[in-house]
């Protein structure tokens, strides 16, 4: 009973705030409407009995949406929607795609003949998840590590205007970096 109520409340919040992303004019509100939608989805994941995944979704999404707000506001004109102007490109198209996807998925969910659950889920899912991650193949983690390393290097190369040669001189011999603003170390 309580689970049903929670399910419907969270579901409606997720859909409505997801829809609000298209309706709001302010970049800040759009981002946090998306965050509200993600948080509701995280609640639904918890309802499914996947505690770790739900909580970690909330954790990651809060961080990521705040970072996204920073970037949206940095680059989009009229970030607070003070001017009555639309900030969307191809609003009708994107709306059609998202509403269409939602409808297809919802219909699919309703029409599928879901099998009845046999057995019970493993008692300690987080533990199982850890085993799955660490289970035997070191390759997964190493590939991931190198990928993330490449991501860090690539973003640094792409996003910083001044590299080490600008900071320490052509022969990298300067004892202190020459930066417009000082830092904490070195």
């Amino acid at each position: 009973m309580l689970a049903d109520v929670s399910f419907w409340v969270l579901g409606i919040v997720a859909v409505l705030s997801g829809f609000a992303v298209f309706r709001l004019n302010s970049m800040a509100r759009v981002t946090f409407a998306l965050l509200a939608s993600f948080l509701a989805v995280a609640g639904l994941v918890v309802l499914l009995g996947l505690g770790y995944l739900g909580v970690v979704t909330a954790l990651m999404m809060v961080i990521e949406m705040v970072v996204m707000a920073v970037f949206m506001i940095m680059y989009m004109m009229n970030p607070a929607g003070l001017m009555p102007m639309s900030m969307y490109h191809n609003k009708a198209g994107s709306m059609a795609i998202s509403v269409g996807t939602f409808a297809v998925l919802a219909v699919g969910i309703l029409l599928t003949d879901w099998p009845v659950r046999r057995g019970v889920p493993a008692p300690a899912q987080t533990y199982q998840l850890g085993l799955a991650l660490m289970g035997g193949q070191m390759l997964t983690m190493m590939t991931l590590g190198v990928t993330l390393f490449a991501t860090i290097v690539a973003t640094v190369v792409l996003s910083t205007g001044r590299g080490r040669y600008d900071r320490y001189g052509d022969d990298l011999a300067a004892p202190r970096a020459d930066d417009p603003a000082g830092g904490g170390v070195g």
């Binding site: 770790y52 909580v55 909330a58 809060v62 987080t126």
Partner: peptide, 11 residues
């Protein structure tokens, strides 16, 4: 007393 209490706290 959550199984993932530490993660919850962090979130």
């Amino acid at each position: 007393d959550l199984t993932d209490g530490v993660v919850w706290f962090n979130a």
